[in-house]
Design a protein around this nucleic acid. Structure first.
Lengths: 230, 230
DNA sequence: CCAGTTATGCCACTCAGTGGCATAAGCGCG
DNA sequence: CGCGCTTATGCCACTGAGTGGCATAACTGG
């Protein structure tokens, strides 16, 4: 890899880290691009050559994950699995493929940010939409699924995305808003359940497994809580 | 209703209609707010007292529908139905409740627009997210569902939203520019099947009905299409 | 060290969105 | 009918995101 490319990557990473830190501390709207670029010592013009929007810089961790997902989906073989299981496993494989140090911490910050920033949530969901479309193209090309008029493959992928969002909520909920995020100690390659990539993988498995039950969930007649255990 | 309120409503409707017409003809980004306000003879300041953003004005039809959905959900009784069926029926009831003349046409334009305008798609999806959250609050209050840690009610609602989006795609796909009739479906009260509110209701019924099959959908082992044609 | 490529910085610009304040339009009441 | 009171509107100036153009600096390969 040439020096030029490495420099570009380093600038990019600095922008991501600084952005996540500043946005988290002072709020997305509380930080102007001029301030962010000032902190990284980069011109605003350069920022927009690296990212398409202010929201994009904070969504980088999620984009890395879904890019890896698409790569995995490209080479996945259906071992008698459901389409949903196939896609879920591709996502889990992509999750292991994301090799950056401290990815989990960044992803956690990015999600928390998108939860309290409407424009980030919107951008994020639109990105999921595009990714879903790309996945659908792959599935159509490889397995002949997704013939026009058949909504099922698309619905299956939307279910995975919905489950993933719930997994993120559960993951960040357990591993913590209040706790010191990661900078000290060992960011869980093992140990505390719920933290790190392993924890997220577990949450994804849980929420995807909950999909059939969600489909069949029936509220009680009287108005009291009835969650499938009489 | 006072004159003041009626005037406000009339201005609002004029903005919506003009915006949908202009955006459709010249593209969302091809129309500035100044031009739109000029056409309606309203100051930009007034526009932003009526709508929160440029995207919002084009999303008004969808917002009306989901507002009606929430109202219906508020008073829906679970007749032994699945949560998903309950929500689907609330959506269908809300659909009949939206009484405006020409709503279907506006909704169709709004959807087509959001399909080719990233920022509109993002705003739209974020709005769905907020609506889903509001629906979840209602369900929790009325039926005690949605205890923290249980992702299933949320997942069920997300499935409904996914099915709705697919229904919109199918609906605008059939009733779009090509006027080829003859698609099967319920006759409805008037006109061509596939068009109007009746057609959309049918599409919603179809896509929600397809959810279990989507969950169980399995690609063929060899890589060929198992669903459509071998 | 030298040409060719490519990223960067800077400048000016458009446009979405906001706050402040004066004014006009509707409204209630005597 | 006219007079205050409320509320919507218009106008102006401003911030901040995002873009295009162009000169220049930095890397590249030889």
């Amino acid at each position: 890899m040439t020096l030029r490319e490495r420099k570009k990557l380093r600038t990019r990473q600095a922008l991501i880290d600084t952005a996540l830190e500043q946005f988290t501390r002072r709020g997305f709207d509380g930080v102007t691009l001029d301030e962010l670029c000032e902190a990284v010592e980069v011109s605003k013009r350069t920022f927009f050559r690296t990212f398409a929007s202010k929201e994009d810089v904070a969504m980088a961790p999620a984009q890395d994950l879904w890019a890896a997902f698409l790569v995995e989906l490209e080479s996945a073989e259906p071992g008698g699995r459901t389409l949903l299981e196939l896609a879920r496993d591709a996502l889990l494989a992509g999750l292991e493929q994301v090799g950056e140090e401290g990815w989990a911490e960044r992803m956690s910050l990015a999600y928390a940010l998108s939860q309290r920033t409407p424009s980030m949530d919107g951008h994020n969901r639109h990105f999921c939409e595009r990714t879903t479309q790309a996945a659908l193209d792959i599935l159509e090309r490889r397995f002949g699924l997704g013939g026009p008029g058949d909504p099922r493959p698309r619905l299956a992928l939307d279910m995975l995305v919905a489950a993933f969002h719930q997994a993120m909520a559960a993951w960040t909920g357990t591993s913590g808003t209040s706790g010191a995020p990661g900078t000290s100690g060992a960011p869980g390659t093992s140990g505390v359940p719920g933290t790190g990539r392993e924890g997220l993988a577990d949450r994804i498995r849980e929420t995807t497994a909950a999909l059939p039950a969600a489909l069949a969930l029936t509220p009680a007649e009287g108005g009291a809580a009835r969650v499938s255990s009489p």
